[in-house]
Design a protein around this nucleic acid. Structure first.
Length: 877
RNA sequence: GCGGGCGUGAUGGAAUGGUAGACAUAUCGGACUUAAAAUCCGAAGGCCUUGUGCCGUGUGGGUUCGAGUCCCACCGCCCGUACCA
C-alpha cells in the first residue's frame, strides 16, 4: 500500500488542473456565474500565513461553488504601488519597480504550490502601465464628470528633510528619519467628491443584506449624518469682515449653557488676528506642530488662547462670551468654530476648568428629585442660569444620551422634562422662528484627498500650463508612465522627497490645449485608488478601456468578497464610491453601484512583536526565529532580553511575520490549508503558534490510510451499513452548512468526527467506499490534492473538483428518538429518552417520574413544568 | 479621545436563550515493539466534606422557568481613526 506523499501528489494534481483548465473563467450562459474575490495582496516580499488563511478561505468557496454547478471567476493580482517599495529603495538602493516585480515573482511562486483554484491568466499588478493607464483614463472621465477638484489641505511636513510625511512616518509627532518635530502645512491637493454621495452611501448600506452588521455600522458612523443648528454669534469690536462667527452644533438644546466660543487656529479670524499679535501667532504655530491624524489631535492636551474678543449670546445680548483659539477645533469639521458647553461636554468642561470659565447648567438628571434644593446650584448665575455642576463630580460633565429624558432648567420649547432628541428639534425650530439660525444636516465624511507627493504611484494625468492653467492630458497620450531613470542615470531614492519633482526631463511636456511647453503634475495617486476598482478590471483585465461592458455585465457583481476587518471603512467605502463613479462615467452598469453582494471579514493572524531599543533610541524589531522564549520572557541569542508586545497584526515593518513556506515544504499544501482553516473561526483573530501543523499532517495521512484500506477491502454488506450511511448524510449536511456560512472550523470538526466514524465502522465494503468517496468530496475544497488522489484511488469519475457536490438525504438525518435533559430550577437532574414527536403532556409525566426529579423535589409538588419539545424539560419547584 | 469588535479548560475553540467544554492540540495511561517513532485503544474543567454534591464562560449587577448567549456598568485586549496597505 502506497504512503501519503504530498510532495508527489500535489504537483501531479496541480498539473492536471492546469492542463484541463479547471479554473479558467470563461463566459458561458449555460451555468450561473459566481465571482469570488479575496482582497489582493501587497507584494511585500514573501507571503505570510495570513495570506494563506485568506486565500484558502476564498478557495474553499470557489471550489465549492464550482462543484455546485457554477461558472466561477476567482482571480488574483497585486496591489503593487505604495511606500514600502520606495522605502526599500531608500534603505538599500535599487529601484521600486525592480523590487516590486521581483517580490511579485517570489510571491506567485510561493502561492502556486498551495494549489489555489485561481484563473492566473487574469493576473495583473496595479503598477503595470496597462492597469494604471486605464486608471488615468478613468480619472480623466471623473474629472470631466465633475467628480474631481483641487483645494488646499494639510499634510505632515518634515522641516528638516523638507518633505511630506505619511502618518505612519510620524512617530510621537516627530519625523521618522530626521526626528524633527512635524508641522502641519497646507498644500494644493486633488480631491474626489465622495462627500457629494454621503447620503446615498449611507442609505444604500441598508441594501447590503449580506454584509456584516458591524461593518455597516462602522461605515454609517464614519459617514456620520447629523442634524444640527448653524447660526452665528455677533462679535463686539471685531476687525472688519469678522462681525459674525458662524458655528455649527449638534446640540442646539444646550445653547443656553454656552460658556465660550472656540475657533480653530486655522480659522480666518485666528489667521487675521495673529498678524498683529505675536503671542497668538506663536500659539497658532505651536498648535500646528505634530501630526495630522485625528487620534493625535484628539489626544493632544487641550489648550486655548484668549483672543480678548467677545461675542454676544444670540438670546441675551447682555450675555457676552469670550472667544478662544483652541487647538482641538479643526477647520475641516463644520465651520471651524464651536460654542463650548462645559456642563454637558467633557472636553469643553476640561477646557473650562483649565481657563476658569463658568459652567452653566442646561438640564439635570431626573434622578435628582429636588433640583431646586440640591447644592449643585450654589455657584451663582450666568445669563439667568445656575452655574456649577455637582461639586462631588465637578470635573465630570453630565452627558446623557440624546434619547434619555432629562429635566431642562431652561429649554427653548415644550416640556421641561423631555429627551435630548425632542429638545434638539424644538431648539432648531425655535431658533429658526427667531431668526437665529437654521437646521442643517451635515456629514462627517470628508472629500477624499488623493494627491501623494511620492514616486511609486499612478501619475495624475494633468498638465500645468502657464497660459491654460490645469489641463487634462489627452487620452491618446496615456499611459503617462513613470520614468524608470533620470535620462540614463539611476534615480536617486536616497534623497527624501519626490523624485518626479526633481527629474531633469520627465516633467517637461506640451500643453494638450495650446501646444506650448508645459509641466506635468508630479503628484501621484493614493494607492487606495488602485484598489478601488481592480475588482471590475478583473472581469476584463486586458481590455483597451477600463472595463468591457459586456464582461462587466456578465461577471459583476462580486458575489463574495473576503478580506480583513482592517479594511472595513476606507477601502470598502472608496470602492463603493468608485463603483458609482464608474457608473456615472459609463464604465459599469447601474446595478453595480454596490459592487460587493456579500462581504466576509476574516480575522487577522497575529503574532507577538519582539522589540528592543537601538543605540539611537529608536525601536528595533526582531524576527520570531531570533528570539528564544523562557518563562514568558524573550531573549536574543546574545542574552539580551526583548520586550514582548503580544498579539499584534503581522506587519513587515515589525518583523513579526510568519513564513508559511517552511510548513508547505515540510508537510505539503493540503496540511497548510487544513491547518489554517481548522480550530479558529474565520472571523476571529488567531494568534499564530508553530505547533499543530504536524498534527494536521498526521490527520491527512490517516485519512489517506483509511481510504487506501477501504479501496482494498472486500466485505459483504451488513447491519452496520445503515449507521455509517446515516453518519455520512449528517456529515454532508453539517459540512455543507459550515462551508456556506463560513464555519470552516465547524466543517472541519465534523470531518474529524466522520473520519473517526468511518475508521471504526464495521460496515461492508460498498458502504465504506461510498463513505470514503464522500469524505474525499467533502474535504476537497480544503484539501484538494489529497481529495483528488483518494477520489482516483476509489474509482471516482473524472476530477473531484468537477464532481457534483453530494446531497444530504433528509430522511437519513432524523433520529426516531431523542434524549431530553430534565432540569429542576435550571439544574440538570436526570434525562429521558423518548420518541421524537411524543406528546408534551406525556413527556411531562415521564419527566416528573424520574429518580433525579423525585429526589430534587423531595416530595414537594412542582409549581410549573416547561417542556420544550425535542430540547429540554425544566421543572420549577 | 472617538467609532467598532472580542474575552469559555493547560491550549485553539464548540454551543438557533435550553445537558457548557463538541472537535482538536498538548498531557497522562494502556496495546504493539528489544527499544523508540508511527499506529491503535483509553483518561482527563475545578473543589472538597466523594454527595449522583458544590463551584465554574473577564468582573459586578439585571431580565428569564432557564443566560456563555439578552440588557446595564466596569476591566483587559484587538482593529480603525481619512498619507500603512
Amino acid at each position: 500500500m502506497s504512503r501519503y506523499d504530498p510532495s508527489v501528489i500535489e504537483p501531479k494534481w496541480q498539473a492536471v488542473w492546469e492542463e484541463s483548465e479547471t479554473f479558467r473563467a470563461v463566459r458561458s450562459d449555460d451555468k450561473p456565474k459566481y465571482y469570488v474575490l479575496e482582497m489582493f495582496p501587497y507584494p511585500s516580499g514573501r507571503i505570510h500565513i495570513g495570506h494563506v488563511r485568506n486565500y484558502t478561505m476564498g478557495d474553499v468557496i470557489a471550489r465549492y461553488k464550482l462543484s455546485t454547478g457554477h461558472n466561477v471567476l476567482h482571480p488574483m493580482g497585486f496591489d503593487a504601488f505604495g511606500m514600502p517599495a520606495e522605502n526599500a529603495a531608500m534603505a538599500s538602493g535599487g529601484h521600486p519597480k525592480d523590487w516590486t516585480y521581483s517580490n511579485i515573482d517570489t510571491m506567485v511562486s510561493q502561492m502556486k504550490p498551495l494549489g489555489f483554484g485561481l484563473d492566473w491568466s487574469r493576473m495583473f499588478a496595479t503598477c503595470d502601465p496597462e492597469y494604471y493607464g486605464q486608471q488615468q483614463a478613468l480619472f480623466l472621465d471623473m474629472l470631466e464628470a465633475g467628480l474631481v477638484y483641487r483645494k488646499n489641505a494639510v499634510v505632515n511636513w518634515d522641516p528638516v528633510d523638507m518633505t511630506v510625511l505619511a502618518n505612519e512616518q510620524v512617530i510621537d509627532g516627530k519625523g521618522w528619519r530626521s526626528g524633527a518635530e512635524v508641522e502641519r502645512r497646507e498644500l494644493t491637493q486633488w480631491f474626489f467628491k465622495i462627500s457629494d454621495m454621503s447620503e446615498e452611501l449611507l442609505d444604500a448600506l441598508d441594501t447590503l443584506d449580506d454584509w456584516p452588521a458591524k461593518v455597516k455600522l462602522m461605515q454609517a458612523n464614519w459617514i456620520g449624518k447629523s442634524r444640527g443648528l448653524q447660526f452665528a454669534f455677533s462679535t463686539i469690536d471685531a476687525p472688519d469682515g469678522f462681525d459674525r462667527i458662524e458655528v455649527y452644533t449638534t446640540r442646539p438644546d444646550t445653547l443656553m449653557g454656552a460658556s465660550f466660543v472656540g475657533i480653530s487656529p486655522d480659522h480666518p479670524l485666528a489667521k487675521h488676528l495673529e498678524k498683529n499679535n505675536a503671542d497668538l501667532a506663536a500659539f497658532n504655530a505651536e498648535c500646528r506642530k505634530g501630526g495630522t491624524t485625528e487620534e493625535a489631535l484628539e489626544k493632544a492636551e487641550k489648550r486655548g488662547f484668549d483672543t480678548g474678543l467677545r461675542v454676544r449670546h444670540p438670546f441675551d445680548t447682555a450675555w457676552e462670551l469670550p472667544v478662544y483659539v483652541a487647538n482641538f477645533i479643526l477647520m475641516d469639521y463644520g465651520t471651524g468654530a464651536i460654542f463650548g458647553c462645559p456642563a454637558h461636554d467633557q472636553r469643553d468642561l476640561d477646557f473650562a476648568r483649565k481657563y476658569d470659565l463658568p459652567t452653566p447648567l442646561v438640564f439635570t438628571d431626573l434622578k435628582l428629585d429636588d433640583p431646586e434644593g440640591f447644592e449643585i446650584y450654589t455657584g451663582g448665575q450666568v445669563g439667568g442660569l445656575p452655574v456649577t455642576v455637582n461639586p462631588d463630580t465637578g470635573n465630570v460633565a453630565f452627558v446623557p444620551g440624546k434619547g434619555e429624558r432629562v429635566r431642562y432648567l431652561r429649554g427653548f420649547a415644550g416640556d421641561e422634562v423631555q429627551t435630548g432628541d425632542v429638545a434638539i428639534d424644538a431648539a432648531i425650530e425655535f431658533c429658526e422662528e427667531n431668526g437665529v439660525g437654521h437646521g442643517v444636516t451635515k456629514f462627517r465624511l470628508r472629500d477624499w484627498g488623493l494627491s501623494r507627493q511620492r514616486y511609486w504611484g499612478c501619475p495624475i494625468p494633468v498638465v500645468h500650463c502657464d497660459a491654460c492653467g490645469v489641463v487634462p492630458e489627452k487620452k491618446e497620450n496615456l499611459p503617462i508612465a513613470l520614468p524608470y531613470d533620470e535620462d540614463g542615470k539611476a534615480i536617486d531614492f536616497s534623497i527624501p522627497g519626490n523624485p518626479l519633482d526633481r527629474h531633469p526631463s520627465w516633467r517637461n511636456c506640451v500643453c494638450p490645449s495650446c501646444g506650448q511647453p508645459a509641466k506635468r503634475e508630479t503628484d501621484t495617486m493614493d494607492t487606495f485608488v488602485d484598489s478601488s476598482w481592480y475588482f471590475a478590471r478583473f472581469t476584463a483585465p486586458r481590455a483597451e478601456t477600463p472595463t468591457d461592458m459586456a464582461d462587466a455585465e456578465y461577471w459583476m457583481n462580486v458575489d463574495q468578497y473576503i478580506g480583513g476587518i482592517e479594511h472595513a471603512i476606507l477601502h470598502l467605502l472608496y470602492s463603493r464610491f468608485f463603483a458609482r463613479a464608474m457608473h456615472i462615467t459609463g464604465h459599469l452598469p447601474e446595478r453595480c453601484k454596490e459592487p460587493f453582494n456579500a462581504l466576509f471579514t476574516q480575522g487577522m493572524v497575529t503574532h507577538a512583536i519582539y522589540k528592543t531599543t537601538g543605540p539611537d533610541g529608536r525601536p528595533v524589531y526582531h524576527y520570531p526565529e531570533d528570539v528564544e522564549l523562557r518563562d514568558g520572557k524573550g531573549f536574543l541569542k546574545d542574552g539580551t532580553e526583548v520586550e514582548i508586545i503580544p498579539s499584534a497584526k503581522m506587519s513587515k515593518s515589525k518583523n513579526n511575520v510568519v513564513d508559511p513556506v517552511a510548513i508547505i515544504q515540510q508537510y505539503g499544501a493540503d496540511t497548510a490549508r487544513w491547518f489554517v482553516l481548522s480550530d479558529s473561526p474565520p472571523e476571529r483573530d488567531v494568534e499564530w503558534t508553530a505547533s499543530g501543523a504536524e498534527a494536521a499532517a498526521r490527520h491527512l495521512g490517516r485519512v489517506y490510510r483509511i481510504a487506501a484500506e477501504v479501496a482494498e477491502a472486500n466485505e459483504a454488506a451488513n447491519a452496520e451499513d445503515d449507521a455509517l450511511l446515516r453518519e455520512m448524510h449528517k456529515a454532508i449536511h453539517d459540512v455543507t452548512v459550515g462551508v456556506e456560512s463560513f464555519g470552516f472550523n465547524a466543517s472541519i470538526a465534523r470531518l474529524y468526527a466522520f473520519t473517526n466514524a468511518l475508521s471504526k465502522s464495521k460496515a461492508g465494503s460498498d458502504a465504506k467506499r461510498q463513505a470514503a468517496k464522500t469524505l474525499a468530496q467533502l474535504m476537497s475544497p480544503m484539501t484538494p490534492h489529497l481529495s483528488e488522489e483518494i477520489w482516483a484511488l476509489l474509482g471516482g469519475e473524472g476530477l473531484v473538483a468537477n464532481a457534483p457536490w453530494p446531497k444530504a438525504d433528509e430522511a437519513m438525518l432524523v433520529e426516531d428518538t431523542v434524549t431530553l435533559p430534565i432540569q429542576v430550577n435550571g439544574k440538570r437532574r436526570d434525562e429521558i429518552t423518548v420518541p421524537k414527536d411524543m406528546d408534551t403532556a406525556e413527556v411531562e409525566k415521564l419527566a416528573l417520574a424520574t429518580d433525579g426529579v423525585k429526589r430534587a423535589l423531595d416530595g414537594a409538588s412542582p409549581k410549573k413544568v416547561i417542556v420544550v419539545p425535542g430540547r429540554i424539560v425544566n421543572v420549577v419547584a
